[in-house]
């Protein structure tokens, strides 16, 4: 137990120390801790940027209850790789307007980064990127997912992603007619 005397002072020192640190500690849903550069976190994630600016970063590990350790490790890994290998400004510019400005294709290292992931890991990472407001990582993961669909029919896509077909027979027939020009020869 801490004595009251000097507590305020300790608190003050802790706060100063926290402000001086150039990393932030993130805690996954299963309690694992990860360090990430404060600069990269703030630049790549709007949510973390907001937390850093708002002072809601916990020195002992900021709780990210929605993100498991594997996904968080990938997020941190991505931030570190990004900080090391990218001339910054180039990638921040991607705008969100739908299909008006083509998105910048993933860089070679970003492709490799997502290519090594299992389906489940990719799924968790895309959700984590979305949750943390990491626009670029979301683009990169979504690009990877779109690549997995290319050249495939709806049936093949369902198979790849293990998705149940929840259409009725009638709806399916309607869709089949709509898509006949693109996918079916008859």
């Amino acid at each position: 137990m801490e004595v009251d005397k000097g507590k305020g002072e300790a608190e003050e020192t802790r706060k100063v120390a926290e402000a001086d640190r150039d990393t932030v500690t993130l805690k996954s849903s299963d309690g694992k801790l990860f360090e990430v550069s404060k600069e990269a976190a703030a630049r790549l994630s709007t949510v973390l940027a907001g937390m850093i600016a708002g002072g809601s970063i916990d020195d002992n590990g900021t709780d990210l209850k929605q993100i498991g350790s594997e996904a968080l490790e990938n997020v941190v890994d991505y931030c570190n790789k990004h900080a090391n290998s990218i001339p910054s400004a180039a990638l921040i510019s991607s705008s969100i307007s739908f299909n008006t400005a083509p998105f910048k294709e993933p860089e070679e290292w970003e492709r490799k980064f997502v290519d090594r992931l299992s389906h489940d890991a990719l799924f968790d990472l895309v959700e984590a990127a979305n949750f943390l407001g990491m626009e670029r990582l979301l683009d990169v993961t979504c690009h990877k997912i779109s690549e997995m669909m290319k050249g495939k029919s709806p049936d093949q896509i369902r198979e790849v992603f293990n998705i149940k077909n929840d259409y009725t027979k009638e709806e399916l027939e309607e869709i089949r007619q709509e898509l006949a020009w693109a996918f079916y020869d008859d």
Partner: peptide, 26 residues
């Protein structure tokens, strides 16, 4: 998947593939 993620995926797809995407499930 949340709808905003699905929309992010869609922006990488050309039309035929986007139509296939739309036919996968409701």
């Amino acid at each position: 998947l949340p709808i905003d993620i699905l929309i992010s995926i869609l922006q990488w797809l050309e039309l035929p593939q986007a139509l296939a995407f739309a036919s996968v499930c409701t």
